[in-house]
Amino acid sequence: MAINVVVCVKQIPDPSAPARLDPASKRLVREGVDLVLDPGDEHAVEAALQVAEGAGGEVTVVSMGPARAVDAIRRALSMGGARGIHVQDPALQNSDALSTARVLAAAVKGQPFDLIVCGQESTDGSTGAVPGQLAELLGLPLLSFARKLSVEEGKASIHRQTDEGYDVVEAPLPAVVTVTGGINDPRYPSLRGIMQSKNKEVRQLTLEAIGLSGKAGEKALTQEVVDLQPAQARKAGRVIEDKGEGAREIVDFLAELKVI
């Protein structure tokens, strides 16, 4: 039986570039910064593709974001996704996690799927709340922090990260899975994949189209950022170049600190 997979992705400012916040709006500055598919989501796309390819199914890529977020969807399509869904609406600016989860839940509801895959948390916000909220809104089991995923006979099984090692956890399909960075090595899109992705369908949906007018985004914020402060910086200490005395310097320092 074919297994169809939905993967949720987010476009974020390139995490290797230094991040900036706008002091007035208290949001991330996106202007002048390269925008990329969240590297954590690349693992989710890869995991989704592996499941679908193994079972003769298809991967649908879903994202919420401004017009240019379609680039992140195209990137996932160039890796092998079959089609995209892009929810875009001016009212969605400044959405918080619960609002985002409501939008994603409404967007995938009309879509036949057996499995939803998400990264465990976004690289820019690191809240990690959306997948659990999405699972709750859809009434589905959540298999979280997977570093290994296998799907067979109507159930999904994962190795779930724990503090001491991992747990083997199983749930019936349909289910939501979140993946850690250790789960796979995401593929690079092939030239053919990039060419093909340009012709793949990306459905554009507004809040009205998914029945959430006035129920998500700015009109439905659960929280508000009221202040931003630079944290008290650690004072940088001494930096020396090792000219053969580096090891001795460290030992002396450790002795000074009384740890040896």
Partner: peptide, 9 residues
């Protein structure tokens, strides 16, 4: 339907 822990390693 819920996720069940089968084994802890």
């Amino acid at each position: 339907p819920a996720p069940r822990v089968l084994k802890r390693e």
